[in-house]
Design a protein around this nucleic acid. Structure first.
Length: 805
RNA sequence: GCCGCGGUGGCGGAAUUGGUAGACGCGCAGGACUUAAAAUCCUGUAUGGAUCACACCAUGUGAGGGUUCGAUUCCCUCCCGCGGCACCA
């Protein structure tokens, strides 16, 4: 029977840690190497700390504790990503100011986080919605603004009629608002953008980053670089074939197929469209454009949708061969990518092929496969090959022709090499209240004026706000906020009423943490250059393309502006897996959630977090089982009893060997964050040591080994072992490899690859002796008699395989 | 459709420079303790066959094929699940 009382013990140590300031980082300590261990900070929702948070935070804390035991000066900060829509929606419903509900949620969450017993440095706790923090978010906006990286642009944006707010492309899933599931429509507004596209090329460079390949690949796809050529097509009069003076530029990655272009297609939104329509087609074209406007992007890009389009009656001249080809409009060409115009080569592009067949446009074959055949009557041939029907370029390979044709057009100014990116500039304006106000003032005289840095923060009003959305920012309803004076001329002026995307707040919080106590600067230069970049960043894979890309962007900008001296914010990145229940994702709507509080109450934080880590590999996640946690609870009791009980060692040799094997296994697996096998190794050790009994020195080692996983239990036992101070001020054990050397081994005898017998032998037994021993075994002889020995394989100290035929 | 990851007992999972598949834990079954239960401890537990029982035999890591003395691990084809992207010119 165990005497271990988890809840009491955990409370005791949490209090003690607070008193002794064990986890308050000494940022100036140079005696130990720094280690910045970061988690993706939580959004303080009314749902409190859920199991997903635990699965991110607890293993991360175990990792931090392990690094500390290894001698690093570990900094583990905590904070809250506290701006955002849910608090605003709550305010709309219940008329509670977001500042109030957020504070309440943070207070509750802080209690839960403390009960977890992680080694957070509470001294540098921050929340993005506090004026002390968003003052500097606004400061960052101003740096981008002053350096031409923030600009305002009228653009069609995605509009959620329910939230009455603009959504970023990233916030729409399945044509619906990610937050409220309402069908998304369109609206044109004047918006602030950050020029992340300027950094596209640098964001593709992951050199020196220890990140999951998957994440890097996702960012690469997201940025979507493609290299090709731009070609200028001149419009010509359909009757006289004379140039009209107008032209359109297209982007293509397959300029080698240019001789096969039989029409070009413009996006319905393309600005040149109104100028080039021929009278006869005007009604048709305008109808089509009107129809397109009503369709959302999502519908337009729905899978398997039949391609539609209309003729404009206009014609252009192919610059490479002078062919006159028709100009069409079709909604499958997107205004937002490339130039909003494409050349169509039906013979060598599936989309163009289907379109040409439908509208009976000629198909001209210009590429032949190097090997085998293509059948243009049946389908498009889209691979590279060699050119035919292409004048001087015949017989060249696709790659050669791409270079040569572009260079040929370059001479006459009708083409050039060009690189395109799918990445769009970052839309940061939000027509919301609960965000950092954009520090811009509009003056009738002076125009757009940035708020002077010394006037920051532009504070959110606490009173007089109407949260009910009316299609504009709630801030517009607060006269006290909007009416101000121009910092330039002193005349009356209006403030920008939009706030920033919360991703702006979270794109730099890791820089603020170590300087969070400093009110003078966003981040202390010395501290930052010493403590950054982040050594380990652990969080969900859902942030692969947004938060993690934005943070890299802001970091690079701040480096370019000379504020910091490092290019990348996160050296090592790890994504935790997903916890499921009965194989399904947990969700409130399904009612299959697990409440951490309930299990922490019953078993304690140590047991709960260890079970989470035991369920499966950390990066894969696992399936929660209510009774599975009992196994960990039993293990904790057994371990406590093992250390607590004094007894004579029965089998010293076995104990030492097992202990050092365990040190090796635990150390190696901790390095790989394979907590599940760390725990099973400790279980095996406990099972064996319970039988052999254990001496005091070995106990200390065992306690250190379990300390990262069960910090409270370890501290309690460390104290019981009459060790003062904290186990987390001790040193991680090192195994003695001499103790791991095996003298005897079990050799497996296989006949034709099947295990037939085993025998014990000296590890260094020679092949001949091993075979001799094996062949003397009765059972082996039985099989040998069935045929002739064809081959004998000996894997030293492991296996004998005799092939009999 | 494309890209990435995965598929192992009743369940979560372990093992891969190719070398005894199923560690560890849950669950289940039997036993001990108890008036009884819970807790705890001990034993067993891939499937099928055979046996009073053991020894034993066969099969087995999504399916099929290949390479090899030997394949969960390598190669090919296919099926299923998960995540991401998607008319990107």
């Amino acid at each position: 029977m165990s005497l271990y009382n988890a809840r009491k013990t955990e409370e005791k140590w949490q209090k003690k840690w607070g008193k002794t300031k064990l986890y308050e980082t000494d940022f100036e300590d140079n005696s130990r190497e720094k280690y910045y261990n970061l988690i993706m900070f939580p959004y303080p929702s009314g749902d409190k700390l859920h199991i997903g948070h635990w699965y991110n935070f607890a293993p991360s804390d175990s990792w931090g504790r392990y690094k500390r035991l290894q001698g690093f000066n570990v900094y583990e900060p905590i904070g809250y990503d506290s701006f955002g829509l849910p608090a605003e929606n709550y305010a709309i419903k219940h008329s509670v100011h977001p500042a109030k509900s957020t504070e309440k949620n943070i207070n509750y969450m802080r209690k839960q986080l403390k009960a977890m017993g992680a080694m957070y440095n509470w001294k540098t706790e921050l929340s993005t919605s506090s004026p002390e923090y968003y003052k500097w978010t606004q400061w960052i906006f101003l740096q981008l603004y002053k350096n031409g990286l923030a600009y305002k642009k009228k653009s069609p944006v995605n509009w959620c009629p329910h939230c009455q707010t603009v959504l970023a492309n990233e916030q729409i899933s399945d044509g619906k608002c990610e937050r409220c599931d309402t069908e998304v429509t369109k609206k044109t507004l004047s918006q602030w953008f950050f020029k992340i596209r300027d950094y596209a090329e640098r964001l593709l460079d992951f050199d020196g980053l220890n990140w999951p390949e998957k994440t890097k690949l996702m960012q690469k796809h997201w940025i979507g670089k493609s290299t090709g050529s731009e070609i200028v097509f001149d419009f010509v009069n359909p009757d006289t074939k004379e140039p009209t003076g107008k032209s359109v530029t297209v982007f293509t990655t397959r300029i080698d197929t240019l001789f096969g272009a039989t029409y070009i297609v413009l996006a319905p939104e393309h600005e040149i469209v109104p100028q080039i329509i021929i009278e006869k087609h005007k009604d048709n074209v305008n109808d089509y454009i009107e129809k397109t406007k009503k369709e959302t992007d999502i519908n337009r890009s729905a899978e398997g949708r039949e391609k539609t389009g209309v003729e404009t009656g206009a014609f252009v001249k192919n610059p490479v061969n002078g062919n006159i080809i028709p100009v069409w409009i079709a909604d499958y060409v997107l205004a937002s990518y490339g130039t909003g115009a494409v050349m169509a080569v039906p013979a060598h592009d599936e989309r163009d092929y289907a379109f040409a067949k439908k509208y009976k446009i000629p198909i001209i074959e210009v590429i032949k496969p190097k090997e085998g055949n293509s059948n243009i009557e049946e389908e498009a041939f889209t691979d590279d090959g060699y050119l035919i029907n292409s004048g001087d370029f015949n017989k060249q390979s696709s790659a050669e022709a791409q270079k040569n044709i572009t260079n040929f057009l370059k001479k006459s100014g009708k083409g050039d090499f060009k690189t395109q990116y799918k990445l769009r500039d970052w839309l940061i304006s939000r027509q919301r209240f609960w965000g950092a106000p954009i520090p811009i003032i509009y003056c009738d005289k002076c125009g757009e004026v940035p708020v002077p840095e010394e006037d920051l923060p532009v504070t959110l009003p606490l009173e007089g706000v109407d949260f009910k959305p009316k299609g504009e920012s709630p801030l517009a309803t607060v006269d006290k906020f909007t009416n101000t004076v121009c910092p330039n001329c002193g005349g009356p002026a209006k403030r920008e009423v939009d706030t920033m995307d919360t991703f702006v707040c979270s794109s730099w919080y890791y820089l603020r943490y170590p300087s969070a106590h400093n009110k003078e600067v966003p981040f202390d230069k010395e501290v930052t250059n010493k403590w950054l970049p982040v050594d380990m960043y652990i969080g969900g894979p859902e942030h692969a393309c947004m938060h993690l890309l934005y943070a890299r962007f802001i970091n690079k900008v701040l480096k370019d502006l000379g504020f910091i001296n490092f290019e990348e914010p996160f050296k090592t990145l790890v994504h935790q897996g997903l916890i499921t229940k009965d194989g399904a994702k947990m969700s409130k709507s399904k009612g299959n959630t697990v409440s951490p509080d309930e299990f922490v109450e019953k078993y304690g934080s140590d047991v709960f977090r260890m079970y989470l880590m035991f369920m499966g590999p950390f990066t894969d996640g696992g399936d929660w089982n209510d009774s599975g946690i009992k196994g960990i609870a039993r293990f904790v009791d057994k371990f406590y009893d093992l250390i607590y009980t004094k007894a004579e060692v029965q089998d010293e040799k076995l104990l030492k060997k097992t202990l050092h094997k365990t040190i090796k296994k635990v150390t190696e697996d901790m390095e790989k964050l394979q907590f599940n096998t760390v725990i099973s190794a400790l279980m095996e050790f406990t099972n064996i040591a319970t039988k052999t009994r254990i001496d005091e020195d070995s106990k200390k080692i065992a306690v250190k080994l379990i300390a990262p996983l069960a910090p409270h239990l370890a501290e309690e036992l460390w104290e019981k072992l009459d060790e003062g101070d904290s186990v987390f001020n001790s040193k991680w054990p090192i195994y003695n490899s001499e103790l791991l050397i095996e003298e005897n081994t079990e050799i497996v005898v296989q006949i034709n690859g099947k295990v037939r017998a085993k025998f014990n032998a000296d590890v260094n037994i020679e092949k001949e002796d091993a075979l001799k021993t094996a062949k003397n075994i009765d059972k082996v002889q039985k099989y040998l008699n069935e045929g002739k020995i064809v081959k004998e394989i000996y894997v030293p100290g492991k296996i004998i395989n005799i092939v009999v035929k």
